[in-house]
Amino acid sequence: MVEVYIDGASAGNPGPSGAGIFIKRENGEVNRHTIPLGTMSNHEAEYYALLHALDICIHEGITTVSFRTDSQLIDAAIEKRYVKNQTYKPLLDEALAKIEQLELFFMKWVPSKQNRADELSKRAIQLNQTTE
């Protein structure tokens, strides 16, 4: 099963934001993605990291995945298929629609220290300054 680590980060809330995605395939191959997201809140950055990772999986034909996130907000929203803050409902709905395109999807919460995408998301914040 392919492991996908995701993380969103912001320098300020809102502030320059980035998404980090770390994909480890069954054959051991690793892909790292750093995606500048512009200015947004940390929670929005977490959702966009999830959406970008799902897009990558769908585009590359990866249909059996185990996602890891250090965001309790994202983990709970996916598990319950519900968000209390309606600001995030369109993002959750989009993520759930993408998840439906996969054969098998798991989401697991991990501590930040175990999230292989953590450093990538911080690097992605820096890319905002070079792309503006």
Results as ranks from 00 to 15, higher is better:
92 L>K: 01
2 V>R: 14
81 R>V: 05
4 V>S: 11
34 T>C: 09
107 M>R: 07
125 I>Q: 01
81 R>K: 13
110 V>K: 06
103 E>V: 13
44 E>K: 13
38 G>C: 08
49 A>V: 01
82 Y>K: 11
62 I>D: 03
90 P>W: 00
58 I>K: 03
57 C>N: 00
112 S>R: 13
34 T>D: 05
116 R>A: 08
130 T>A: 09
44 E>F: 08
104 L>M: 15
59 H>K: 15
43 H>T: 11
21 I>N: 07
58 I>F: 03
13 N>Q: 03
122 K>Y: 08
51 L>F: 07
100 E>Y: 08
35 I>W: 04
123 R>S: 14
32 R>N: 10
115 N>R: 05
125 I>R: 01
82 Y>V: 02
35 I>R: 08
114 Q>S: 11
40 M>L: 09
68 R>D: 00
67 F>E: 05
89 K>T: 02
124 A>S: 08
2 V>A: 10
105 F>E: 07
117 A>D: 00
131 T>K: 14
21 I>P: 04
84 K>S: 13
72 Q>Y: 00
106 F>S: 12
116 R>I: 04
47 Y>C: 05
109 W>L: 15
27 N>T: 11
89 K>I: 03
109 W>G: 01
67 F>Y: 04
8 G>L: 02
129 Q>G: 13
61 G>R: 01
108 K>E: 14
9 A>N: 04
33 H>A: 08
25 R>M: 14
4 V>L: 06
1 M>E: 15
55 D>Q: 14
31 N>I: 03
